Simulated assay, not measured.
Amino acid sequence: MTTPSEQARRQAAEQRDPGLSTILGERRQLLNLGYRLLGSLADAEDVVQEAYARWYAMSRAEREAIESPGAWLTRVAGRICLNLLGSARARREAYVGQWVPEPLPDPAEWIAGAAGGAGVDPADRITLDESVTMAFLVVFESMTPAERVAFVLHDVFRYPFAEVAEIVGRSPAACRQLASSARRRIARARAGASPDTARQASVVRRFRAAWQTQDIEALIGLLDPDATAVSDGGGRALAHPLPVEGAERIAHLYLTIARFAPRLTLLERTVNGLPGLVIESGGRVETVFAFQVADDARITHIWAVRNPDKLRPWGPC
């Protein structure tokens, strides 16, 4: 977020370093790259700061010798993400319960909910497209670090394989194979998923109504018989520790939640670019729900994020 005092400091810094505006102009690109690779806005922000720190650790002559600062920063950020992904398995094993990528609201909702309505710097916004839907980010988690980096850099950010190879540390041909393997994983995971946003909005709206009225039959009818529900509390909020599978089990679980917390407010919101739901209590966001809806208009996956550390962009939590 940019305040008037921060803007003044930035202008003063740009006077001292005329190239600063060019470097800061890469922030959004780097943040978008980091979020897609890591599934965490907080981690992406750390990657951007580290990339900038390495840039300014060089001498002025070294920086001026770099023909494309943006490409240099992307290479550095990509390598930092690759290293973080390599250690992610150990971090996930230490995580309490299920780990779900950090959900993001629609940019307009993010702006309204952040810091009492203060504007968010455009450089801090994530572009919400197909590559940041919860379903995509979850599939990314199943990939090897090299697959993930190769796919995101080439297929999402359109970097040629020759440049991807410099980041991944493999040949261009090997990176081409990595991206191809990643595409196959995504195709398998998305088989039968509906690309129709209006259809998903309708299904989510009916799910909300059935949940609020505690209509068990309607809930079961909206869920695929083999649906899966995952909840991420991170040890900081109550959540079911293992995935819940099957329409009837999920429906009964959600009705139990409704009965024990009747005063919760359930709102329709955009979650990672697709229709989702948010639970508010006392004006605070407690849970964000993302959905995957199949072509037959049934819900196949529900991801519920309750860890407050992952709900910062949603305002007070």
Results as ranks from 00 to 15, higher is better:
T213I: 00
A227K: 10
W72A: 14
R36Y: 06
I216V: 11
Q177G: 14
D226H: 12
T265R: 14
L267N: 11
E50R: 13
A229N: 03
A165F: 04
A44N: 06
E14L: 02
L38Q: 06
L238E: 15
T256F: 06
M58R: 12
R206P: 00
A71F: 01
V156H: 08
T144R: 05
R259V: 14
T3F: 07
A239W: 13
S131R: 02
L242G: 00
L84G: 11
G25L: 10
V230N: 04
A173W: 09
A218P: 04
M58K: 12
R16L: 15
I126C: 04
Q98E: 15
S131A: 10
N307W: 03
D226Q: 15
A209P: 00
R199Y: 00
E280C: 01
T256R: 10
Q15I: 11
R125A: 11
A193L: 15
Q49P: 00
E141D: 15
E14V: 09
E268P: 00
W99K: 01
L30C: 03
R158H: 15
L153E: 12
E286W: 08
S180E: 15
R10M: 13
G233L: 09
A165D: 03
W72Y: 15
R312S: 12
A210Q: 08
A227M: 10
S59K: 05
P18N: 07
V48M: 08
L104V: 04
V156R: 09
R125W: 01
E102K: 00
N307M: 09
A114M: 10
A115H: 10
V139D: 14
E64Q: 13
E268C: 01
G221T: 04
V305C: 06
R208S: 10
D232C: 07
E64T: 11
P316Q: 07
A182H: 12
H154K: 08
A251Q: 05
A65F: 04
A13M: 07
V168E: 11
G113R: 08
D17I: 03
R125K: 14
L24Q: 09
G276R: 01
W72R: 12
I299C: 12
R60W: 05
L84E: 14
M143Y: 11
A297P: 01
A261S: 14
A162M: 02
A8L: 11
P241M: 04
G233P: 01
T127G: 02
P195G: 10
D215W: 01
V47R: 08
I216T: 09
Y254E: 14
F289L: 15
A146N: 07
A123K: 02
L73D: 10
R269D: 12
R92M: 12
F291P: 00
Y95C: 07
R249V: 14
V164E: 14
W55T: 11
A162L: 07
R263M: 12
I23N: 07
N83L: 09
P4T: 02
D155G: 00
T265H: 12
Q11N: 07
S5T: 13
R183A: 14
T133S: 13
M58F: 06
L238V: 13
